[in-house]
Nucleic acid binder design. Structure first.
Lengths: 115, 115
DNA sequence: GTCTTGTTTAAGTATCTACTTGAGTTACTC
DNA sequence: GAGTAACTCAAGTAGATACTTAAACAAGAC
């Protein structure tokens, strides 16, 4: 299931991060690669459920899964996080710009008043 | 409906950002405050649907709604975005740290080999 | 007061999501 | 080969989500 547009990519990315278990897994993988069984161990849910969470993370590009003997070692792809990051930063940037303009505007008003 | 733990806050925040319409609205509000009707205009859905989206954004702290005559002007609260931002940055930081350690480890191996 | 505009609330529905259990696949061990 | 471990796939289900329309509410205009 390929992700086509940027919007769909962000939908999938933010959607993936909207689940505590998946955020946990991402944080865990930031510290080092791990297998499905290792990742599932801390949680009171089935290994299948974790496997499905990993599917979600893989589909949005946040992780990749290799093959080593019977295991599927999971690895974080931190570059994928940049997409989410940039979106947030862009909104912040626009907002900050507007605040600067407002500030400049108020400064001009103050100057005019003093003349 | 108050958000209690940090995890629930992030669930709600990322969940809110996982919808294209809501991301659009946030981007729009970064450029300036707007009323519900103004925000709803570009979309082929009912004003009620947009009002519900605004409810989601308000509940996770991304926007606040004031009152002016019959309208409810919406304002972005960009500080709320910091929570999502920090979470991403923390994961990246952990990953980068590990890569540095790995790099240092490989450097030592290379030195040992040269002796 | 009635009427209109802007918005929220309520109720219904179709689709999606996060799990479950059971069966199937892959790769190693004996 | 049979048996086992690690994992995925498939089908089912409870609850969430994104809309809809209809009704209620809020605030000003008349």
């Amino acid at each position: 299931m390929a992700i086509t547009t940027e919007d769909e990519g962000l939908d999938a990315m933010f959607g993936a991060l909207a689940d505590r278990t998946r955020r946990d897994i991402v944080a865990r993988l930031a510290a080092g690669d791990a297998t499905v069984t290792e990742l599932a161990a801390p949680y009171p849910m089935s290994v299948q459920a974790i496997s499905q969470h990993l599917g979600v993370l893989e589909r949005c590009g946040l992780i990749t899964r290799g093959r080593h003997r019977q295991t599927r070692p999971c690895r974080l792809e931190p570059l994928a996080l940049e997409a989410a990051m940039s979106w947030i930063q862009e909104s912040r940037r626009t907002w900050a710009e507007r605040m600067d303009l407002l500030e400049a505007h108020l400064d001009r008003l103050r100057e005019d008043r003093q003349q």
